[in-house]
């Protein structure tokens, strides 16, 4: 059904394919998509028959992150509602990061802001050479709050300091170099690369894969519930500021925000 924000398909041999399906808005996620994606991941997480998950998206862009219309409207909600909404977003990344099975993500095009967060929460990230990336939040007066723990783990503190603060666009090769992508291949070879990795996983023992995934989480710097709630409060608070509201308005009005000096 085309009005589904997220498509979910069970393939043979225990493969779950999850497809972001809002191509007309570059697969940006709003409250509907966050809820659908979270539900879908919950279903996969409790299905013992599923052995590997593939996350992909429709259209040219992988995902441009949170839908700015939805972000901007948060200011109209009560403070509590605003934080609750942000917690759902934080919950989505946590859900993806802690899936009990190996997760593969197919990044066919640009991934910005929260879209980059989705990539960082997966185990194996395979991208097309033409894909572009940016931790774009500060450009809009926002911060990469809820994705920061996952992204910083994936790319390391040094790259996080650079890209969180410059919001600059970087290519797939750079993404591979800093550890965000595992492979950057020609678009024509993206599907075969995905297939190869999934086949490797299917050749492994399911119980061991699940146990291994648990272990990876246990030994990694686990993101505590407290810290997640704190990141949610931070994004809820900053998106209500005059600065962020101006940044997001400027984006929609296709103009520079006030803090950019006109030349």
């Amino acid at each position: 059904m085309s009005d589904q924000a997220v498509l979910f398909e069970r393939k043979t041999a225990g493969i779950a394919v999850v497809t972001l399906n809002r191509p007309n808005v570059h697969n940006a996620f709003n409250d509907v998509m966050i809820a659908q994606l979270t539900n879908c991941l919950n279903e996969i997480a409790t299905d013992e028959k599923i052995r590997v998950m593939l996350l992909q998206s429709k259209g040219k862009s992988f995902s441009s992150g949170a839908d700015l219309n939805w972000m901007r409207a948060a200011v109209d909600n009560s403070a509590d509602q605003n934080v609750e909404d942000a917690k759902k977003l934080a919950g989505l990344f946590h859900r993806l990061d802690t899936m009990p099975i190996p997760t593969v993500v197919r990044v066919q095009g640009p991934a910005f802001a929260g879209g980059l967060g989705l990539v960082a929460c997966c185990d194996i990230a395979l991208g097309a050479k033409g894909a572009k990336f940016a931790v774009a939040e500060v450009k809009l007066g926002l911060i990469p709050a809820v994705i920061s723990p996952y992204l910083a783990q994936a790319i390391g503190a040094s790259a996080a300091r650079q890209f969180f603060q410059t919001a600059e666009v970087f290519g797939a090769n750079k993404a591979k170099q800093i550890g965000l992508l595992h492979e950057a291949v020609d678009s024509a070879h993206l599907d075969s690369t995905v297939t190869k990795v999934i086949k490797s996983i299917l050749g492994n023992a399911q119980g061991a894969n699940r146990a291994c995934k648990k272990l990876i989480y246990e030994i990694g710097s686990q993101v505590s519930e407290e810290f997640r709630a704190d990141t949610a409060r931070q994004i809820a608070s900053i998106r209500s500021t005059v600065e962020a509201q101006e940044g997001m308005s400027a984006f929609f009005e296709r103009r520079h925000p006030q803090w950019v000096e006109e030349k």
Partner: peptide
């Protein structure tokens, strides 16, 4: 060996290569 692998090759490479065994 997982903790020293994470130290050596990072979390994301550990995720990939320990789960795929490739």
């Amino acid at each position: 060996i997982l903790t020293q692998l994470v130290s050596a090759i990072g979390l994301q490479n550990t995720r990939r290569f320990s789960l795929t065994a490739e």
